[in-house]
Design a protein around this nucleic acid. Structure first.
Length: 562
RNA sequence: UGACCUAUGGUGUAAUGGUAGCACUUAUGAUUUUGGUUCAUACAGUUAAGGUUCGAAUCCUUGUAGGUCAACCA
């Protein structure tokens, strides 16, 4: 009752990573500006979880006048391709992250890493192991049982010779590795003499056939951060157990107290009704459940872009999601909120009918067409107005007419009067049905006094409908999208099923749209609000004779729910 | 039964020993030439049990639950 209201505090709140950065800046820990990076592996396209990571690292660098690098973590030639490098560059740029000229590849550092590896061998901290992958795995032990490594006491010179021969291509794959000599009894499995190099006689998208040994992630990542002068190396929680190894490698190269990068982990993004792992997304693409990485149903950045999402909406979303260390599943509705919030302020309004019902204005002259003024965006006066044609035959939405409507239905029914937006009040007098009883057209009269949608006598109507002039309407293709999965958690499946069983069969419905002529000037990616229906954007597949619209998101509809 | 991490309304995230707040969602109402937007109101929370303290979401102890790790993936 007497609850006291807090005085408004404009105190900015910082998440734990920003807190760390602020302290480091205060203590001048690095003796320079902060430096972050985004390190994608070019083996697939980026998704919105990556967007969160990019916006975090870039946003922090920008806010604190630091630097941000883009670095491709291309240490495994098996699945990495130039196509993905280009896709990733495109997506990061589109999001607005700026890495200036600092576009790097871990493969640039292969020679340096190799030298450091020899150094470790010489220090007795690394050795060549001659076991098959199966043997390495068997001998690793279990979390409770220490492992063993039969070659770890091999003389330094012998390891050095073998390592050089590995590089020279004298051995076949899976016969030999270079391993760090750490602790085969560590409770942290990553510390049980991790692999530093493996043999792969594979062509690399950057280094070609120069190398046949490739460094592993752990041996590459921290060292690359170090080479680039990264201060805060942000990654997701699953790398938490790698941090001791990240630090161990740096210990071998860096003096106590000297500069070194710091790895900090945060929780990855999950959203309900979709999947977010590269492996699963790749499967959706490869097995053609969707039409490629940029299918508008995909949570990829390229898919969201094609769907009509804006960089701003993704930034808003990433901010609202926050940064923390606990596992999370974000409601899809938050993403939808973010895009509606942006498009409401920016999108051109237009009237379009997707499921048409013909309306004949019986008292309107047969050959007349007049033009009515419509507002382009009620949220932004500077966007101006446009002229919309009106004549005797129109289309309205089938949903907007019920023969015998219930009391709370504000739209059209027999004997009811509604407003056609920006046009006239009309009253329905009669309907025409086909032999199956389906309504084929409705007959209305209009009130010429109500031009523009106002009645001079001040009488009110509760409903306002969107409409298009049948004669002047432009016919387009419209693709209606819905959530990709039927279940909140796509992994919620019966035994011997998988997430594929939860795909939503109605995630894409292709239909037609009849749109006012204004739309003929639309270009690919242009975004519109189809009044009362939702936000739509022009799809890439659009050709001169066939405009195609993607529905980005519907408008909130507090009537449909009832 | 090993190591590391996490636990606050339906969801996400704040409160840094001192009034548990914000956003999304949901519901209701007002405004409205979009059943949109905007505005207002409401519902609803500290994993459990002990302990320290004048005072604990916060510190300590012990549970419970969840996540990650035994690829020559990243």
């Amino acid at each position: 009752m007497n609850k006291q209201i807090n005085p408004p505090e404009n105190k900015e709140v910082y998440h734990f990573i920003e807190e760390i950065i602020r302290e480091d800046l205060k203590s001048n820990k690095y003796n320079k500006e902060i430096h972050t990076r985004f390190p994608p592996e070019p083996n697939g396209y980026l998704h919105i979880g990556h967007a969160k990571a990019i916006l975090l690292s870039y946003g922090l660098a920008e806010k604190y006048n630091g630097k941000f690098n883009l670095r491709f973590d291309d240490t495994n030639p098996d699945a990495e391709e130039t196509e993905y490098v280009e896709g990733i560059i495109n997506d990061v740029k589109w999001l607005g992250a700026n890495w200036e000229n600092r576009e790097f590849f871990a493969s640039n550092y292969f020679e340096q890493l190799y030298e450091w590896a020899e150094m470790l061998i010489n220090k007795g901290k690394a050795y060549v192991c001659e076991q098959t992958p199966e043997q390495v795995s068997e001998n690793r032990g279990t979390p409770q049982v220490p492992g063993k490594s039969p070659f770890r006491d091999r003389p330094i010179q012998e390891s050095l010779n073998l390592f050089r021969k590995m590089r020279a291509g004298e051995f076949t794959e899976n016969t030999m590795t270079l391993r760090a000599k750490i602790d085969m009894a560590s409770p942290n499995m990553h510390m049980r003499d991790p692999i530093m190099y493996r043999i792969k006689h594979k062509h690399h998208h950057r280094t070609g056939d120069k190398w046949c040994i490739y460094p592993t992630y752990d041996w590459t990542h921290g060292q690359s951060d170090f080479i680039e002068g990264i201060t805060h190396s942000l990654c997701t929680l699953e790398f938490e157990n790698h941090r001791p190894l990240y630090n161990w490698y740096l210990d071998q190269l860096v003096e106590q107290g000297a500069y070194r990068p710091r790895q900090i982990e945060f929780a990855r993004l999950n959203i309900n009704y979709t999947v977010m792992s590269k492996r699963k997304l790749l499967r959706l693409v490869k097995e053609k459940y969707v039409n490629g990485w940029d299918d508008p149903r995909m949570p990829t950045i390229t898919g969201l872009r094609r769907r009509g999402y804006t960089p701003q909406s993704i930034k808003t979303f990433a901010e609202k999601v926050g940064i923390a260390k606990r596992e999370n599943v974000i409601d899809l509705s938050l993403l939808e909120y973010a895009i509606r919030d942006d498009l409401n302020k920016t999108a051109q309004r237009v009237m379009a009918v997707i499921d048409p019902l013909k309306v004949i204005i019986t008292n309107y002259p047969k050959d007349k067409t007049e033009f009515l003024e419509a507002i382009n965006n009620p949220e932004d006066e500077t966007m101006g107005t446009r002229q919309v044609p009106f004549s005797k035959e129109l289309f309205i939405e089938k949903d907007d007419f019920i023969e015998n409507p219930p009391k709370k239905f504000f739209r059209l029914g027999i004997g009811r009067e509604v407003r056609l937006r920006y046009a006239y009040f009309i009253t329905c007098n009669d309907i025409v049905k086909d032999e199956n009883g389906n309504i084929t057209e409705i007959h209305c009269t209009y009130d010429p006094q109500s031009r523009g949608g106002k009645s001079p006598d001040g009488r009110k109507v509760k409903g306002t409908l969107h409409w298009v002039d049948a004669k002047n309407a432009i016919q387009t293709e419209v693709r209606l999208y819905d959530r990709l999965f039927i279940k909140e958690n796509p992994e919620d499946v019966a035994e011997n099923e998988d997430f594929i069983n939860n795909l939503n069969p109605d995630s894409l419905i292709t239909t037609k749209g009849f749109i006012e002529p204004f739309i003929k000037y639309a270009k690919i990616q242009d975004k519109f609000q189809f009044e009362r229906l939702g936000y739509f954007c022009v799809d890439n597949d659009t050709t001169e004779n066939n405009i195609i619209f993607n529905r980005t998101v519907t408008l909130k509809d507090s009537w449909a729910k009832k």
